[in-house]
Simulated assay, not measured.
Amino acid sequence: MTIPQPQQQQAVPKQNSAPYLMPLLVGGLVAVALGVYGRAHTPTGYAVGLSGFTGAQAMKSWLATGTFVLAIVQVVSALAMYGKLPGVQAPSWTGTLHRWSGRVAFLLSVPVAFHCLYALGAQFDVPRVLIHSLLGTFFYGVFVAKMLSLPKKGLPGWTLPLLGGLAFTTLTGLWLTSSFWFFTTFGITF
């Protein structure tokens, strides 16, 4: 009786996943660093103020609303660019609109985030504020991961839509726990 010999299996070359995981790692580090800073930093109670607003909360609410509206433009323009809107042929300027709406949205979000971190810090005593603090740090982590993933060639096709969807979903939660809350609690003020 002969004993069957195991068949030789072809060696599958290992694919180096480090270049694809690096954006996620850096994004995670950014989120953690912002959370640690927000928690360890002694809040000052003030940070920045733009003229034309009655106070910091109104300023942050309107800038966050502008950011949120531009994020909607981001989602719609991305869907149009990738042919995911039935019956819609994306105009040639859709890519430019997508890039610039993203840039402006980011710029609008910076004074809001700066004020939140520097003036208020990460707070965990009120559920709404806890959720808002966690979403804020997560948003910038996802944003960094998405931006670092953009120049990577060979990423799975679902990578950018997933990161973009996470960024939009997180921004929606941020807007609901800040601007929407402010407007429904104090009214629409400038």
Rank of each mutant, 00 (worst) to 15 (best):
T2A: 09
I3N: 08
P6A: 13
P6V: 05
Q7L: 14
Q7N: 12
Q8G: 03
Q9V: 14
Q10E: 15
N16V: 08
A18P: 03
Y20I: 04
P23M: 10
G27D: 05
G27V: 08
G28Q: 07
V30P: 08
A31S: 12
V32Y: 04
V32I: 15
L34Q: 05
Y37R: 12
G38S: 10
R39M: 03
R39S: 10
H41V: 02
P43W: 09
G45S: 13
A47H: 11
S51A: 13
K60I: 11
K60Y: 02
S61V: 01
L63M: 09
T65V: 00
G66W: 08
G66H: 04
T67Y: 03
V69I: 15
V75T: 13
V75R: 02
Y82W: 15
P86E: 12
V88F: 15
A90P: 09
A90W: 08
W93F: 14
W100M: 10
W100V: 14
S101W: 08
S101L: 10
G102F: 06
V110H: 09
V112G: 02
H115E: 12
C116T: 11
L117M: 11
L120N: 06
L120V: 05
Q123R: 15
Q123S: 12
F124P: 03
D125A: 11
P127E: 01
R128N: 08
R128E: 06
R128C: 03
R128S: 10
V129N: 07
I131Q: 00
H132Q: 02
S133V: 05
T137L: 00
F138I: 13
F138D: 00
F138P: 00
F139K: 00
A145Y: 04
A145P: 06
M147Q: 07
L148R: 05
S149T: 13
L150S: 01
P151W: 05
P156D: 10
G157E: 09
T159I: 12
P161E: 02
L163W: 00
L166A: 13
L166N: 06
A167L: 07
F168C: 04
T170V: 10
G173L: 07
L174Q: 14
L176M: 12
T177H: 03
F180K: 10
F180W: 15
W181F: 11
F182S: 02
G187F: 06
I188D: 00
